[in-house]
Write a protein that binds this DNA or RNA. Structure first.
Length: 826
DNA sequence: ATCGTCGATTTTTTT
DNA sequence: AATCGACGAT
């Protein structure tokens, strides 16, 4: 959905607040008094301040979205700005949609015409308009990371670069990092050590990649930003158009901007005319008078909102300095601090504060609230990830029975793969849930195929798309033929797409020739349908019909229908879904073109269209959770190697960023927070023993109640549990009083056979109890080191994950992981 | 050119 | 556990 149509749609159903369309402000009267209702002094300041630059340091839950929307509303209400003069940048499309809706709630329809979008969407709009300035056409394709990886993979192979340790993944990430720094192959080559052959090959790859993008008339995600900056710098006149237009620029989540995004904002906020080249006259350089002195040419006013404690995207180039050095970049900037939290209970905030305070080199900031302590944080340790998931499911059911709505509950995890176990248990428990993000609809192979067909129509220069579809469904066109076509196209100086029209000139067999000719005809027919001659307007349904035409006449549908593979049935359903999406798009955007549709599906992630998670529990990664809030939050997998993730644990700044991520997770909770972990976790088909996360011990013990502590589960005997309990009762964190463990230590004590209590290093202990393949059956009597004797009720699970359900004579029913539980058969 | 099998490799997070 | 790529058989 485009911004405009979304706006129109919502405007219809949104009540307009009284006072929205009053005339121009009268002197002395505040036109925006109602906008300030319920705000604290700092928030008011953030709404009403007027000046060139404003930094709002907004702690989690401090009402920053409210402040931002009211600030926009007050600019519009006071006639200080037309909607078209406002550019608001958010992190996700969903956030953009919400912001637009909230502004409209405040001032009604007059909000139309604002640009509220992500960096990427805004840049696409600019680039589509200006692409012809620098060697692209407006019908350029947007390559997502999968597309660019496919291209890089091909190039790596062609250059035999893997011999130099340049894997596709590594190459892609290096190129991306460089682009985020606005570096290109040429400038990188200047600073690189070209004596190193690996470096030379990399530079070559980088250059080749960029050449291919240009040839395909395509931008990758990073280019969308980087090339816009390039455009502004190379064509100051173009930049001035946008500088003149956007007088008020607001950027949310500023702590997660990378250098390219920073530069883009910088370009946009420069004084109008400032990019003009100094001209020389008679051998003397003449500089125009500083435009900043001219009020008509002053740069746009800039408002940024952020919280460096919530910076969690350094891995993709976010530069925390953008926010920490804002005052240096924009001298005279006003800084407003929002520390009062309106979201969570004090217990949750105290835990969050305690955790984040372990990050050094941060400005101390303490969230506070006046809503009271609230519930204790609940901890739980499962035997396995399934056990953990069961706890989560049971607890959610309990909350639900107590009156909670499922949609007010969320479950977070560090990695997408963790959602599996949760899903399995949720399905079994008949818990309604929805996974946000995760495996994306638009990343499914059949959807990518269908989109590639559309791209082939929209942007014939895109050889990647052509290569993708040329033998899908199978038409007997293999590598040899593809290369023949490619070579022919290069020789003739035409596109791959156009080469299809000359199938007889390729020197391939008649069967293949006719296959090529057929594909060519299908594409041509689709073009006629979706891209009518200039001046005419394609019917709104053209895209939906076009997809169907392509899938039908290309034989794609037929091939799936003929297949015996059960999965192919699901694929057909997915494709039907895509057609439905196209129809929906047409409804919302009667004038939407094929390009608009492709742009939307390239930039809108699944996490964005989470509209009606109503009635469902939300499952998502902690990254996805940023900016959201729920009454009850379950943070799962609070284990070493997960949070902090093992990969970042050894990277500079890694543990700190992971801590911020954990902090983000915690601060999403309004009333109830659950932290859970499992003692064992299966990965790569192997069961490994997991350790409690180092971050757990940073939470003061008095805030946390364990339903089942790590000691209860892991212990090799009662002494340890008691030791742990004793520590906890002593009151200062179960990491131990006054003693700080280094980041490389985990606080669980362990009793050695000799009887010494000692901490062990952050590694899986060399000796975990291993009962091997001890066989247990219902009815067997066993003895547990801690719980005494009991009788086995049932055994579930398989292999290393077998769990015994035991009813102990004194300790009651327990679930034990047979492989590692301190038990013996009697 | 296509299909099947084996073995390698994987999982960090996302616009 | 599951997916992907390489290789060999048809």
């Amino acid at each position: 959905m485009t911004d405009a149509s979304a706006a129109a749609q919502r405007a219809a159903s949104v009540p307009v607040i009284v006072g929205a369309n009053q005339g121009p402000s009268q002197p002395g009267a505040r036109p925006d008094e109602d906008l300030l209702a319920g705000l604290n002094p700092q928030q008011r300041e953030a709404v009403t301040f007027r000046g060139q630059a404003l930094l709002i340091v907004a702690g989690a839950g401090s009402g920053k979205t409210s402040v931002l929307t009211r600030r926009i509303a007050s600019l519009l209400r006071g006639r200080e700005a037309w909607p078209s003069q406002i550019l608001a940048i958010t992190f996700t499309n969903k956030a953009a949609g919400e912001m637009r809706e909230r502004v409209e709630n405040l001032i009604g329809d007059s909000a139309r015409g604002m640009w509220i979008s992500t960096f990427h969407s805004a840049c696409v709009r600019i680039l589509r308009r200006e692409a012809e300035q620098f060697g692209f056409t407006k019908s350029f394709t947007i390559y997502d990371s999968g597309d660019s990886r496919a291209l890089i993979k091909r190039l790596v192979k062609e250059h035999e670069a893997d011999a130099y340790g340049l894997t596709p993944a590594a190459t892609q990430s290096r190129i991306s990092k460089l682009k985020n720094e606005l570096s290109d192959a040429e400038s990188y080559a200047r600073s690189a050590n070209m004596a190193d052959p690996a470096e030379r090959v990399f530079v070559e790859l980088f250059a080749a990649y960029q050449r291919e993008l240009q040839r395909a008339n395509a931008f990758d995600f990073d280019d969308l930003i980087g090339q816009t900056v390039f455009l502004f710098r190379a064509f100051p006149k173009v930049a001035d158009v946008y500088r003149r237009r956007f007088r008020h620029i607001l950027v949310d989540e500023y702590q997660d901007t990378n250098h390219a995004q920073y530069a883009l904002i910088h370009e946009l906020t420069r004084p109008i005319g400032s990019g003009a080249e100094p001209h020389s006259a008679g051998g003397m350089m003449i500089f125009d008078p500083d435009p900043a002195d001219d009020p008509d040419k002053a740069g746009a006013s800039l408002t940024v909102v952020g919280d460096s404690d919530q910076s969690i995207y350094a891995f993709r180039g976010a530069d925390i300095r953008n926010i920490s050095e804002f005052e240096r970049d924009y001298p005279g900037a006003k800084v407003v601090l929002l520390e009062q939290n309106y979201r969570s209970t004090q217990n949750i905030l105290s835990a969050a504060n305690a955790v984040i305070s372990n990050n050094f080199d941060r400005k101390d900031k303490k969230l506070w609230t006046d809503v009271g302590a609230g519930e204790q944080i609940v901890g739980f340790t499962g035997y396995s990830q399934h056990d953990e998931a069961q706890f989560v499911a049971d607890e959610i059911e309990a909350l639900h029975r107590a009156g909670a709505n499922y949609s007010e509950v969320a479950v977070f995890y560090r990695t997408n793969s963790q959602s599996r176990a949760l899903e399995e248990i949720f399905i079994r428990s008949a818990l309604p849930y929805k996974i946000m993000g995760g495996t994306k609809f638009y990343e499914r192979a059949e959807i990518k195929d269908a989109l590639a067909y559309l791209v082939a129509v929209a942007n014939p220069a895109d050889e990647m798309a052509m290569r993708r579809i040329i033998n899908r469904p199978r038409r007997g066109i293999g590598d040899v033929t593809v290369e023949a076509i490619s070579r022919y196209a290069q020789e003739e100086g035409i596109t791959f797409r156009d080469a299809l029209a000359n199938s007889s000139a390729l020197g391939v067999g008649p069967k293949i020739q006719s296959a090529i000719a057929h594909l060519d005809a299908v594409l041509a027919e689709a073009s006629a349908l979706m891209l009518p001659a200039s001046g005419e307007l394609a019917p709104p349904t053209a895209v939906a019909e076009g997809v169907q035409l392509l899938l039908n006449k290309s034989g794609y549908y037929d091939a799936l229908r003929a297949s015996k593979d059960a999965q192919d049935e699901a694929r057909i359903e997915n494709l039907d879904e895509l057609v439905a999406v196209a129809r929906e798009f047409a409804r919302n955007n009667p004038e939407g073109t094929l390009l608009d549709f492709l742009t939307e599906v390239s930039l809108v992630s699944d996490a964005d269209d989470l509209e009606d998670a109503s009635g469902s529990v939300s499952l998502m990664t902690m990254h996805t959770a940023k900016g959201l809030e729920y009454d009850a939050v379950f943070v799962t997998g609070v284990e070493e190697d997960l949070i902090p993730h093992r990969i970042s644990a050894n990277e500079p700044g890694g543990p700190q960023e992971e801590r911020r991520l954990f902090y983000v997770g915690i601060t999403r909770a309004r009333k109830r927070l659950y932290l859970s972990l499992a003692m064992t976790r299966a990965q790569f088909g192997e069961v490994t023993v997991a350790m409690p996360s180092r971050f757990l011990q940073e939470i003061p013990a008095e805030l946390l109640t364990w339903r089942q502590s790590p000691g209860d589960v892991n212990s090799r005997g009662g002494t340890q549990s008691r030791a742990l309990n004793a520590r906890r009762q002593s009151g200062s964190g179960y990491g131990g009083a006054g003693k700080r463990y280094g980041d490389d230590l985990v606080p669980l004590p362990r009793r050695e056979p000799g009887g010494n209590l000692e901490r062990f290093a952050n590694k899986i202990p060399a000796k975990v109890r291993d009962n091997g393949d001890m066989e247990l059956a219902p009815g067997d009597r066993i003895r547990h080191d801690d719980f005494g004797e009991g009788r086995v009720d049932a055994v579930t699970g398989e292999g290393a994950k077998r769990v015994a359900h035991v009813r102990f004579d004194t300790a009651g029913p327990k679930k034990l992981l047979i492989k590692i539980a301190p038990i013996e058969k009697l």
